[in-house]
Design a protein around this nucleic acid. Structure first.
Length: 875
RNA sequence: GAAGGUGUAGUUCAGUUGGUUAGAACGCUACCUUGACAUGGUAGAGGUCAUAGGUUCGAGUCCUAUCAUCUUCACCA
């Protein structure tokens, strides 16, 4: 093994080995329990970003853990066609070549789109591999694959036949740039500075009329009424009267409706049913006509008179100018309001009435609410359940048609001859009624319509396949909180509807990756982090552990180069600790731990390993990968490397072959279990080292299919492990005193110990540890303090070190003074507690006893320190 | 406007059902190349746990209010 950790030497090789050996493949297996995770399919719009790297790492870690735990694990990968997002990208690309999608035609465009999918989908798969993802490539899916498209049609038809899909005129969010309607969820609101234009609508027959306030004067041409509040005395007389609609020759009525807020603006609202969702509702209540004055691209249409053909904002200025010329513009006041934007292209949304396909949500939402309320499905962390329930309980019908080409075409056919409308699983050529040729609906479905089916369409639904039988429902869905409404909720109600069971029992929500300053990563900010660059620089393991570590459920994580560097160092630490172990293991026969005589240190590390296994497993069971990683980090660095490796040198460099063999066996065994525990998070380095372990401890042909360590009963080690900790306490205190006194590290001294009652019959080995780790020269047990020594109180007993001429009398007094103050403080605190009768009466007995013990301990310590102080001051 | 999260060392975060002297990493200071690793080791400085009340024998932890900050949802013309 090389002296430094260099992931380039093994990552690619290991991944190929895993893939070639089909370790990732899952098959229905009655002897094993399944554990299934559906990968949220990345969009084929580009390449993976750091957020993908986070979610994939969490998923892979959990999958690898469960695989080692003996489950038949399926992690099903795939990509999403991402209808609107991809179409926008392709159109941009075409624009660079100087062509439009219309020039290509539908067929030609789709050809381009599939080529795009090959290119970018392929790239994403490469990236997933580089990350180390152990997903089942044999099951790779794409939302527009034949069988998934079949599932989409099946779903549409079933909804349609139930009457849950309808075609109707509603106000939709029209994106003038993407030229399609988008769902409510795809609208992002942003606060903008605008104007509130106050416009007078004169009364027919000459009255002053009414002044209305509007932020969108261009929609005036579609006004069908002016509404006031029924209880508003200012306008009571005008209700029912006709007003002259400015810039037109139309007249419109004044109506009364509860919807109007008396205190806002002038208390009078222009009602434009075709261009505002609230106005649309008002219009329905008052039987108003719907007059649409704008087209799908944000231009005024032929009903807009002289403004026809103008772009919406151009029309706005023109009309404001004209109103002003007519003296009808009363005032213009600045107004801050929220404007919806398309979350893909960011153009301002235009609410427009149009005919679209909708899915009625009332029936679908109910079971999806119940399943969470009945705790059959939980969110981790729990607080996201509130988010979800709030959304579900207030859900509106889902607009599923999109005026795009890239996606699943709506399986509805129209017959122009007889006016028939037919939904069909198969492509229709002629009208089933009259035999005339039919045409298919031009629109495609919302991209989430297909991803909503992901957990079962990828397993073969609507067929009853063995896969579906075995792997559905899946276990946990892992994703960031930003797509709960888009996607998670839709999978839940789809699964309940078509499979009769929720698609998973747990939704694990993780945060978003942010930069060092806590900002979202985005292209416009230029703070994007490319996961591939990081892999190239430091390897996939470092990227993975940097992403998941320190993440507790649901919280966002900040990615910094500092953090990355820290974990790069950690990898190097593991690498070198492994080198140390392997070097010492060379030529030594490794025995099972049960068969060798263990030292204090050996028992201690095995005990600590056991506790680490318990904790890490517990965290992994709770899907707390970040906490598991941190726990391991502390154990590997803080206990295994900093302490055990150093302690083991006592045995390794001794002449006692048996002792050496025992410790080597422990080293190798502990290292192996560390590798196994860490493998789910850092698969590459652990696999590489595992392959270099002595045969005796390699329990599988590859670490990824080896069994996960389990907790053992080690009660019999407990006392020795405690003794070891007492020795370690002594070592730390000796070091601290030496450093405090300015003793050079290379100056070794004798160490004398007067052990306390608890520690007996182990001085020989303890002495070796003291000498080795506390700069000792030799060691002896004594019954009282030798002359010229300084006293150090430790858990192990009193330790004396002759510092000779190095003892600085004043410094020593200062040190003793500090310790004395500290001990007195603690004594006072404990005594204060016990003086409180209520504490003694109410606190648990163990706690009270602990305080009593503490008083004894500190009294004793104070006595020692005081006598020592007196002695020193006489010098 | 509604709901929710967060607030602990200079920075990033841990801190289980309330119970030792509130921990780690990075950074900082001092010392050290000791036979895995200077991408290292040892020791150290640094915290009125946002603020004010309350419950309790006991609060970083539970409750209330306030402030700061972030997110989601709704959107009034």
């Amino acid at each position: 093994m090389d002296t430094t950790f260099d992931p380039k030497r093994f990552e690619k090789r290991l991944y190929s080995k895993w893939k070639d050996n089909k370790y990732f493949s899952a098959h229905p297996n009655k002897d094993k329990k399944p554990f299934t995770v559906m990968m949220p399919p990345p969009n084929i719009t580009g390449q993976l970003h750091i957020g993908h790297a986070l979610t994939m790492t969490v998923q892979d870690s959990i999958i690898r853990y469960k695989r080692m735990k003996g489950y038949e694990t399926l992690w099903l990968p795939g990509t999403d066609h991402a209808s609107i997002a991809t179409e926008v990208k392709i159109i941009d690309k075409l624009a660079e070549e100087g062509i439009t999608k219309e020039q290509l035609g539908r067929e030609g465009f789709l050809k381009r789109a599939f080529a795009w999918k090959e290119q970018y989908g392929g790239r994403i798969i490469k990236q997933l591999e580089q990350l180390g993802s152990s997903c089942d490539w044999d099951r790779l899916a794409f939302t527009m694959d034949d069988n998934l498209s079949r599932a989409v049609k099946e779903t549409f038809v079933r909804y349609y036949e139930k009457g849950w899909i309808y075609h109707g005129a509603r106000i939709v969010n029209q994106c003038p740039h993407c030229k399609t309607a988008i769902s409510d969820a795809e609208v992002e609101y942003e606060t903008e500075e605008g104007n509130l234009w106050h416009i007078r609508y004169p009364e027919v027959g000459g009255g002053e009329g009414i002044i209305v306030a509007t932020t969108r004067p261009e929609t005036l041409l579609g006004d069908m009424a002016v509404a006031v509040h029924p209880g508003d005395k200012r306008y009571a007389k005008l209700v029912g009267k006709q007003l002259a609609l400015p810039l037109t020759d139309r007249t419109i009525p004044v109506i009364a409706d509860e919807y109007v807020d008396k205190s806002f603006g002038t208390g009078a609202v222009k009602i434009t049913p075709a261009h505002d969702p609230n106005d649309f509702e008002v219009g329905l209540r008052h039987n108003l006509e719907v007059m649409r004055v704008m087209d799908d691209t944000g231009h005024m249409n032929e009903l807009a008179g002289k403004y026809a053909g103008m772009e919406r904002y151009e029309a706005r200025s023109a009309m404001v100018a004209d109103l002003e010329a007519l003296g009808l513009l009363v005032k213009t006041e600045p107004h801050t309001h929220n404007v919806g934007h398309c979350h893909r292209c960011h153009a301002a949304i235009e609410p427009i009435v149009s005919k679209q396909w909708f899915v009625r949500m009332s029936e679908l939402a109910k079971p999806a609410i119940d399943v969470v309320k009945n705790k059959k499905l939980r969110y981790l962390p729990k607080r996201f359940e509130k988010n979800y329930l709030h959304w579900m309980e207030n859900i509106r019908d889902w607009c599923i048609s999109r005026q795009l080409w890239w996606g699943h075409r709506i399986p509805v056919f129209y017959c122009d001859a007889c006016g028939g409308e037919f939904v069909s699983r198969e492509e229709l050529k002629v009208c089933p009624k009259c035999g005339a040729p039919v045409r298919q609906d031009e629109d495609v479905l919302d991209t989430w319509f297909s991803s909503a089916l992901w957990p079962f369409s990828t397993l073969g639904w609507p067929d009853k396949t063995p896969d579906l039988e075995y792997f559905y429902p899946t276990n946990v869905l892992i994703t960031a909180y930003d797509i709960i409404t888009f996607w998670v909720s839709r999978m839940i109600y789809s699964g309940l509807e078509f499979m009769g069971q929720a698609p998973f029992d747990t939704v694990l929500i993780h945060g978003l990756v942010r930069d060092e300053l806590g900002r979202k990563l985005s292209k416009s900010l230029g703070n994007g982090i490319d996961p591939l660059e990081i892999i190239d620089e430091v390897g996939a393991d470092v990227l993975r552990i940097s992403l998941v570590s320190g993440v507790s459920a649901g919280g966002d994580i900040k990615y910094s180069t500092k953090k990355q560097e820290g974990f790069r160092n950690f990898m190097n630490k593991i690498w070198n600790a492994s080198r140390f172990v392997l070097m010492n293991a060379e030529g030594v026969e490794i025995l099972p731990i049960e068969k060798v005589r263990l030292t204090l240190a050996d028992k201690w590390i095995v005990t600590r390993l056991n506790e680490t296994i318990a904790d890490v497993s517990k965290y992994m069971e709770r899907y707390e990968v970040g906490l598991a990683a941190n726990r391991l980090y502390d154990f590997v660095w803080g206990e295994f490397c900093d302490w055990y490796i150093e302690l083991s040198k006592v045995s390794l460099y001794s002449s006692d072959e048996k002792k050496r063999q025992a410790t080597v066996s422990v080293l190798v065994r502990v290292l192996r279990d560390i590798l196994k525990l860490a493998h789910p998070v850092i698969p590459f380095i652990t696999a590489e080292v595992y392959d270099n372990l002595p045969e005796a401890v390699r329990d599988a042909e590859d670490i990824m299919i080896s069994p996960y360590p389990s907790v053992k009963d080690l009660k019999s080690y407990r006392i020795d492990a405690r003794k070891m900790e007492a020795v370690m306490d002594a070592i730390k205190r000796i070091r601290a005193v030496r450093a405090d006194m300015g003793v050079k590290p290379n100056r070794r001294t004798s160490i004398f110990v007067k052990p306390n009652a608890l520690i007996s019959k182990l001085l020989g080995s303890a002495g070796e540890y003291l000498v080795k780790l506390a700069s000792g020269n030799d060691f002896a047990e004594v019954v009282s303090k030798p002359d010229g020594c300084t006293t150090i109180i430790t858990a192990f007993g009193e330790v004396y070190i002759p510092l000779g001429e190095l003892v600085d009398r004043d410094k020593e007094l200062e040190r003793l003074g500090k310790e004395l103050d500290n001990a007195k403080g603690e004594l006072a605190r404990a005594e204060g507690k016990l003086a409180n009768e209520k504490f003694v009466a109410k606190a648990p007995k163990a706690l009270v006893d602990a305080e009593r013990e503490k008083i004894e301990k500190y009294k004793e310590r104070i006595a020692v320190l005081e006598s020592k102080t007196a002695e020193t001051s006489k010098l």
